[in-house]
Write a protein that binds this DNA or RNA. Structure first.
Lengths: 140, 140
DNA sequence: TAACTACTTTATAATTATTCTAAAGTATGT
DNA sequence: ACATACTTTAGAATAATTATAAAGTAGTTA
């Protein structure tokens, strides 16, 4: 059984409410990802390194992958890809857009971009979401 | 030296004009990619399989990667990524957008999407391009 | 609370996409 | 034809991710 404290309770509930057993590893990862002021982007490798660095009992690579996938399926993370064959995850799940600047990602709030014209979805389909990527380059 | 015929000449010139030696492999790949009515999307693996299937003398994997990169650098291909850690290449290099429907990609002509509002580029940066992805799901 | 069962974690192996290496081959200028 | 720099190639190496199957744990039941 978990050491239960107030900080953990909210994440335990969050996991339970999505049908995920609140194991120690999942609670720790949730705390690391969601117990902060600002949303952020990460790769699984980055997450693993920054969490395991300060832990005596390491969490395994497979568990990081499993948990990130589970959190994504539960709707707590958004996935996106750059042109380097790595998956990035975003703790900001609200609809928003991105600047891409040589591998660096910067959020653009949803209301900063609006459309004058958008195409219809093909027959039998509907639009799930619209995502804009603005690629940047240096001036001059 | 190449067997030169009219069909090849245009691709040999195209390669030469970008500083790429028109080797047999590059000409064959260019012909396969660009000698067709409609533009299309592919992964390097798909390209390799569909070309090598009908060839007695196979082109090596490394050459497919080298050539696709060279054609991309020369501006003849556009790269994009889905959420499966694979690079896709598009023979349609004109600015345009995409529907993504469960791993399937459908082009959207540039003029089908226009903006009412777009953010400024951060200081010192300028916008290289704006790319819209419309994710689809099944109705009901 | 003890026992049970299904779900999780883990180390490790396997897989996939891609890049690297260095030896053999080829295009191009002279 | 020769020389030289660029290419191709098979195969090894790397990186990100997934699969495997044994050991551990949460939640349920008696």
């Amino acid at each position: 059984m978990q050491k239960m404290n107030n900080k953990n309770k909210i994440f335990i509930d969050k996991l339970r409410s999505s049908g995920l057993r609140p194991t120690n590893q999942r609670v720790e990862i949730s705390k690391f990802l969601f117990n902060r002021k600002k949303t952020f982007h990460f790769t699984v490798e980055e997450l693993k390194n920054s969490m395991n660095l300060k832990r005596s009992k390491k969490i395994s690579t497979a568990t990081f992958y499993n948990t990130v996938h589970a959190l994504k399926s539960a709707g707590y993370l958004k996935e996106f890809s750059l042109e380097n064959n790595t998956s990035y995850y975003d703790t900001n799940i609200s609809s928003h857009h991105h600047f891409f600047d040589n591998g660096k990602v910067i959020d653009i709030k949803s209301d900063k971009i609006t459309f004058r014209k958008l195409p219809e979805a093909p027959k039998g389909k509907k639009i799930k979401n619209v995502e804009v990527v603005i690629r940047l380059e240096n001036n001059n």
